[in-house]
Design a protein around this nucleic acid. Structure first.
Lengths: 139, 139
DNA sequence: ATCCTACAATGGACATTGTCCAAGTCAAGT
DNA sequence: ACTTGACTTGGACAATGTCCATTGTAGGAT
C-alpha cells in the first residue's frame, strides 16, 4: 500500500477519490513528476479529475510537509514524495533524469557563520549536475 | 564601468544599445533579477527595448557563461552576473531576498562514489534557506 | 440508513513567464 | 557610404499556474 496515503490519513485528511489517486500516482522512490504529469497519470485512473484539483492537492501535500517541491532548470516544478528522509538530487544535464542521492555530511556545516549575513539558516538543498551513464556514452 | 560589459566586448560580441543596457542593469554584486525585472529597468534607460530582446540577450549571456540562471522556488528564473566566482545562494523564505554566499569546501566532495549512480558529476548548486534578520525579527 | 454541513472538486477564465517568427533596422567591415 | 549578416521588434502563441463561483460529497450527527 501507499505510505504516503497512510501518513495523510493519519493526519485526519479528508479522503476523496481524487486525493487517493494523486497520492497513489506520487508514491514510490525516485519519483519527480511535474503537476501536469501527475494529472495525466491521475486521469488514467479517474478520467474526470480536474487539473485544478491536482494543483490544489499537491499544494496541500507540500504544506503538510509530506511532499517536497523542487525547482530544477526546467520550467515546471517537480514533486518528490520522499520528504520523510533528507536527500539531495542528481540531475542529468542532457536528458533531465533525476536521482535521489545522499551526501556524506550535513551541508549546513559547510556554511560558516560569517557567510550567513545574520540569517537564521534552517535548510539546504543541493542539486548536483552531470551526465547520466546513457547520455555520457552518447556524447 | 561594467566588468560584465568589458568581458562581453572582449569576446567579440556585437555591441548594441540594447545589449549595453541589459549588461549595465545586471552588473553588480548580489544581483538576482528576473527577466521581466531586467526588462523594466532596461526600459527606464531605453524605452523602446522589447521583452524579446531582453530574453534573447539574457539567454546569450548564459550560453557564454557570463551569467548564471538560478531557479529558486519562485516562479521566474533569476539571473546572476557573478558567474566568474563560484558561490552558492542563501534565500529568505519569507521575503525572498537572496545573498551570494561561499561554502567552506567543495560540495562535490560530499557526494560519495556509490551515490553517483554512474553519473559523470560536474557541478553542484546549493540553496540555503532561512530567515533574514528583518523577517526573523518580524516573526 | 438518512440527513447536514463544511470542505473538496470542477472547469473555465485569467495571470505570469517564456518562445517563436517575419519584417524592419543597424553595427561594423570594405 | 554601402552592404550584409546579425540584431531588434511586436505580437501571436505556448506552457505553467491561480482563482472563483458553482456543484458535489465525506463523514459525523441523528
Amino acid at each position: 500500500m501507499s505510505d504516503l496515503l497512510e501518513r495523510l490519513r493519519e493526519r485526519g485528511w479528508r479522503m476523496t477519490a481524487q486525493r487517493r489517486v494523486v497520492a497513489e500516482v506520487l508514491d514510490g522512490e525516485h519519483i519527480h513528476l511535474t503537476a501536469d504529469e501527475v494529472h495525466a497519470r491521475a486521469v488514467d485512473r479517474l478520467p474526470e479529475i480536474s487539473r485544478a484539483t491536482v494543483y490544489n492537492t499537491l499544494g496541500e501535500m507540500v504544506s503538510l510537509g509530506e511532499v517536497t517541491e523542487l525547482a530544477t532548470d526546467h520550467r515546471a516544478k517537480r514533486y518528490d514524495p520522499n520528504a520523510h528522509r533528507p536527500h539531495q538530487h542528481l540531475v542529468c544535464a542532457r536528458c533531465g533524469t533525476i536521482r535521489d542521492v545522499h551526501t556524506s555530511g550535513d551541508p549546513l556545516n559547510q556554511l560558516p557563520a560569517e557567510e550567513r549575513f545574520g540569517f537564521t539558516v534552517s535548510g539546504a538543498e543541493i542539486t548536483y549536475r552531470g551526465l547520466c551513464p546513457d547520455c555520457a556514452a552518447a556524447a
